[in-house]
Design a protein around this nucleic acid. Structure first.
Lengths: 109, 109
DNA sequence: CAGTATCCTGGACGATACTG
DNA sequence: CAGTATCGTCCAGGATACTG
């Protein structure tokens, strides 16, 4: 297992996506943005992402992407692009146009 | 759920990776290359990937990537690049140098 | 060989209650 | 508010036996 073991887990990409702005985000705020993921799971993800050096806990401003994390987001872009086209080709056209890359990911716009 | 629901599943990326050459590959051959994944699961993955239009079953030559599948592999490259550097930075240096992107993925060289 | 049908188990996730 | 501890459920995946 490797990268997908990390990013494939529920909420992992969503968390990254929520932090994409570069602004720090508090635990509760993050939780609210993630459709109320349970605190235990959110905490798991945060710990894993921190251990991976993708995000870091700021002193007083919550969590934010590390430089490494920013580069990860960048590396993800082509894939998201592909996913969007693919969603258009493949997916069922009903439901509000969702998030190609991940169900819980609002996806880059 | 979307793309990660597909690629995050066990063996999914590995199958794509095994088909990267563009050569068709038979069921049993694929199974052998994938450390003897169970036939039921392999079949599941193949069906899902076919449904997604990423691979296709050739008449007599097994499975192969579709053009769309080829583009997916391309979109995956930056991510794999990131994963490799990341593995070097983060990962435990023990064990045979594995596959950054996915445990079961030999990973591009 | 290609693919299907069952059964079983581990672990991811959700809910919740709790602590500092 | 931030995070931990516990518990129950559910399902993906592995094993295996089977069919065409």
């Amino acid at each position: 297992m490797a990268l997908l073991d990390l990013l494939g887990r529920r909420w992992a990409l969503r968390v990254l996506w929520e932090l994409r702005s570069g602004q720090g985000c508090r635990f509760r705020e993050l939780q609210a943005r993630c459709a109320e993921v349970s605190s235990s799971v959110l905490n798991d993800r945060l710990r894993e992402l921190r251990a991976a050096g993708i995000i870091a806990a700021q002193p007083g401003s919550g969590y934010a992407l590390t430089p490494e994390g920013v580069r990860l987001l960048t590396a993800l872009e082509p894939l998201d692009g592909w996913a969007k086209r693919w969603a258009r080709r493949t997916a069922v056209p009903r439901l509000t146009a969702g998030a190609p890359l991940h169900s819980d990911t609002p996806s880059p716009e």
